[in-house]
Simulated assay, not measured.
Amino acid sequence: MTLLDHRTEGPATAPPLLLGPSLGTSYALWDEVAPELSVAHRVIRWNLPGHGGSAAELISAGATVGDLAALVLDLADALGVERFAYAGVSLGGAVGLHLAVHHPERLTSLAAICSSAHFNGERPWRERAETVRREGLAKLAESADARWFTAGFTVPGLIRDHREADPAAYAACCDALAAFDLRDRLADVSVPTLLIAGRDDPATPPAHLREIADAVAGSTLVELPGASHLAPAERPEAVLAALRDHLGGGARRGMAVRREVLGDAHVDRAQSRQTPFTARFQDFISRYAWGEIWTDGTLSRRERSMVTMTALVAHGHYEELAMHVRAARRNGLTPDEIGAVLLQTAVYCGVPAANSAFATAQRVLAEEEGSQPGATA
């Protein structure tokens, strides 16, 4: 079976995330976003037929978005991915909407970026398909900057992708856009859904994303100023922040994990001391350290406790060490296992550091057991 050309990044054991491109681009559209997402996800970027390295023969005249969605599912199946989060731009977002309506059992979440439940009717896309079949893509690529980006911004590599795409495959994708209209099925979308709109997008303006948000229960709409149709290329930081919050549960999920590991009493104390000056730092800790790193399934929480205690000993952060000795007990480590970790630090971090670490850990363990700590070396 011939599969869509694709690129995989991130840990093989991490939650899978498929990223879909816009018409005329390649998976390079995600270059400024995918590497960051791959810290916590197995990111799989794919190319449309006739774009990048995907075979043009995978699609033919009269194709539908459903045909493209089937190719995406073939790719997921070949990679052993049963359920996955999905994010797509424009036509790639339409593929995600189709999957959410017709194959909800395969998705864990959906993000539609600069996309729509319809693309302004059939006629403009049928006409574009005819023009491309007759004249090729060179002339159309000349207007890509105006259609894709705000004035003065460009990504030469994406313009080159547009120019070098296979005309027949591109035209077939136009056919798919011409026939696409899921407005009457949007209420059937049940997976957690994020909509991202570029405020300066002429192709799929914010009203198109608002239409989806109004119909999909519990969805979230983010509008990005200074962004046109290819928001991941033009506003990668903003798109990344929205996707991180959507995919990882953001600060809310991080706060839940933080409480599970450190305990309610500690987190409540930290929150009670929060000021306007420290609020952003507390949000950063909850969102990034706890919402992304501690939730990554590559390491168990037991293993993360071992790594964390070692790092704290190495840098002499004994107050933090005390907190994470308590966390290690919540994560299932026995006192003997904690002692073994600290003994290991004596070899690689130095005896004086380990001596202070043993004193700190012994005090914490004694407090937990209701006894008094003894002397250390």
Rank of each mutant, 00 (worst) to 15 (best):
A171M: 09
E319H: 10
L209F: 00
D200S: 15
H324T: 11
S286E: 15
R235V: 09
I212N: 01
A165L: 07
L221V: 12
D336N: 06
D188I: 01
S228V: 13
E164L: 10
G62I: 10
R7E: 10
P192G: 04
I338L: 04
M323K: 08
G249K: 10
A138E: 15
R210P: 09
A375V: 08
F281T: 14
V261P: 02
G263S: 04
G370Y: 05
L73W: 08
R330I: 06
R280Y: 04
L321W: 13
S22C: 13
A314H: 10
L110N: 02
A171K: 09
L312Y: 08
R330T: 10
R259Q: 11
D74G: 02
G226L: 11
A270L: 14
A346S: 13
A203F: 00
E292M: 15
A289Q: 09
T220M: 08
A241Y: 01
E135V: 00
E234Y: 05
D296F: 04
E319Y: 09
G62N: 09
W148T: 03
E337Q: 13
V307H: 14
S219V: 07
R126V: 04
V132A: 08
R7F: 00
D283H: 15
L321V: 12
V239Q: 13
L4T: 00
T334I: 14
I285L: 14
A354R: 04
A78T: 12
D245Q: 08
D166M: 07
